[in-house]
């Protein structure tokens, strides 16, 4: 039967708690701030710059790729080591392709031109998945018509298959009207490789020259 007591006691305890916690509060604020700074720093380290691209997708975490052994049109081997130190855009196709392949290569030439000085910070690679007809030499002549700076690369099917599994591209031979005029189905996306030779993402059709230029500029200028 002492209502005043039952009320005053909690009030006092609450007051004591406040007094005691002034120091604690300061510490917890500081600790909270430290945690926030830590999280932010962590995010910045994991995502050095927030890069949004218009014409495709960047992986949240670039994916390492296994070594491979292909042939450059200049007769030299083309391996994973050739991907390091710069951005790479890989276009998968073949030269016996009358429609989309030359159109895309001509577009990539326009993109290379539009990139200006930034073009020196990335390599364009035309990767032929038709080694039966695309000898490195013929592939080189075809590709360099579009730009002398484009790399022309192909290799044995086993190597192309393994690289495809790593980079997420597929291809398939389709019979044509004669044995010589077979066709190749192939993945249409442009594959992005970062300067650490990791799979970084894809640019997907329909390709728009201006968007490709904008996206690639962002990548080479912000993520090195």
């Amino acid at each position: 039967m002492q209502p005043s007591c039952s009320k005053s006691a909690p009030r006092r305890r609450f007051g004591e708690f406040l007094n005691v916690s002034k120091g604690l509060l300061r510490w917890s604020l500081l600790a909270g701030l430290a945690v926030l700074i830590g999280i932010t720093a962590g995010l910045v380290v994991l995502h050095p710059a927030s890069v949004q691209i218009q014409s495709g997708t960047l992986l949240r975490q670039p994916r390492p790729i296994a070594d491979f052994s292909l042939a450059n049109s200049d007769g030299k081997p083309y391996t994973k080591a050739d991907l390091a130190g710069h951005w790479t855009v890989i276009y998968v196709g073949y030269t016996h392709c009358p429609d989309v392949c030359p159109t895309t290569l001509a577009q990539l030439k326009a993109v290379e031109k539009g990139l200006g000085v930034d073009a020196a910070r990335l390599r364009f690679v035309f990767l032929s998945i038709d080694p039966e007809r695309d000898t490195p030499e013929a592939l080189g002549q075809y590709t360099h018509y579009f730009s002398p700076d484009f790399l022309a690369v192909t290799g044995p099917n086993a190597q192309l298959d393994a690289l495809g599994a790593n980079l997420g591209f597929v291809y398939e031979k389709v019979p044509g009207q004669t044995p010589q005029t077979y066709l190749m189905d192939h993945s249409s996306a442009l594959i992005l490789i970062d300067p650490q030779a990791r799979l970084a993402g894809y640019l997907t059709p329909p390709f728009k020259t201006e968007s490709l230029i904008g996206d690639l500029k962002q990548l080479v200028e912000n993520l090195t």
Binding site: P98, D99, P102, R133, A138, Y145, F146
Partner: peptide, 11 residues
């Protein structure tokens, strides 16, 4: 469409 002189096929 203009293609490389070595092109085996044209569109």
């Amino acid at each position: 469409p203009q293609a490389p002189p070595v092109a085996a096929v044209l569109g």
